[in-house]
């Protein structure tokens, strides 16, 4: 009975997360005029000064906010030769408060991958060693394609390029490219090798998502890599109550991001979806502000060094 209750609670929590993801996706892409056929018109109001916290192409016909990764590259390319302080600072504030919670709850592309993963097929688990190596790829992409190349590269005409958006990002193709090309015949006429390349990447990413849980987030996403840097210092953190944990491993088996929540609760790969919290039969996992209390053994060892009167 208890198990049944727990399963229901886990399902309800997963449903709530999906609703938040979908609601956020609709809310941030609610510019209806952009979806009308004819000349492409995207939203041009003041909200576009702000970045949405998740991956969301600002050329999506419905987008009301800016893409943080695209904006960062645009600043590097700008005439003022920006240092990206506005976007880096903004993302750091979010990361310092909630870490990768954004990835789990407020990313439309994350939701799309999750829905594709629901297609009933045999699922793949990438073996541990290649998986571990591939996880570093997103940090390399962040460093090279988002920071270094857009900052230093200039064409013979002095123009820079948003390397990540141009050559890798499948989000722009899905949310911006495809709808705009479908809605506008002039754009259809301008399709070339770049669109075909990006379309191929999108197909690869979407196909991989059917068999592997959120492959873009695990291996490619520079935004997830950036937020991941703050996981261990963020205000909101996962905690394990060592006195309740019985090492049953249910949390490990539940985690689709292949994190071991009872060993590394604030792993940089955790998207804070709370599935492990709901699955834990001992209620040993929680998400709270700040680090958890010291484990009992460490507390006892620390107290043993103190004079009797000063012990807690």
């Amino acid at each position: 009975m208890d198990k049944q209750k727990q399963k229901t609670a886990a399902l309800r929590s997963a449903g709530l997360r999906k609703a938040v993801q979908a609601g956020w996706g609709i809310l941030t892409n609610a510019y209806i005029n952009g979806f009308l056929p004819g000349d492409p018109v995207i939203y041009q109001g003041p909200l576009k000064q702000l970045c949405v916290p998740g991956m969301n192409c600002y050329s999506c016909p419905g987008a009301l906010g800016s893409c943080p990764i695209g904006s960062m590259q645009a600043i590097f390319d700008g005439r003022t030769r920006g240092i990206g302080a506005y976007v880096i600072g903004y993302l750091a504030i979010i990361g310092l408060f909630i870490g990768r919670f954004i990835c789990g709850w407020f990313c439309l592309f994350g939701l799309i991958q999750e829905l594709l993963y629901k297609i009933p097929t045999p699922k793949l688990t990438v073996p541990e060693k290649p998986d571990k190596i591939l996880r570093y790829l997103k940090y390399l992409i962040l460093l090279v394609m988002v920071f270094l190349l857009p900052f230093y590269y200039r064409s013979q005409y002095g123009a820079g390029e948003p390397f990540f958006c141009k050559y890798i990002c499948p989000v722009g193709t899905l949310e911006g490219g495809i709808p705009l090309v479908l809605l506008n015949s002039m754009m259809r006429g301008a399709l070339g090798w770049l669109f075909r390349w990006k379309f191929l990447l999108l197909i690869l990413c979407a196909s991989a998502s059917i068999f592997i849980y959120r492959p873009f987030c695990k291996y490619i996403c520079p935004l997830g890599a950036f937020y991941g840097l703050f996981q261990k210092v963020s205000l909101i953190r996962m905690r394990v109550d060592r006195e309740k944990c019985v090492d049953c491993g249910i949390c490990v088996r539940t985690c689709k991001m292949n994190v071991d929540p009872h060993k590394t609760p604030n792993d940089s790969e955790c998207i804070r979806c709370r599935a492990c919290i709901k699955a834990c039969p001992m209620h040993a996992l929680t998400m709270k502000i700040g680090p958890g209390p010291e484990p009992l053994q460490e507390r006892v060892a620390a107290q043993a060094d103190q004079p009797l009167g000063e012990r807690r």
């Binding site: 987008a63 003022t80 506005y86 911006g176």
Partner: peptide, 14 residues
């Protein structure tokens, strides 16, 4: 700079 980039269709992105 962010606004100027975001209010025009980013041809590279799409």
């Amino acid at each position: 700079v962010v606004l100027a980039k975001a209010i025009n269709i980013c041809m590279e992105c799409i």
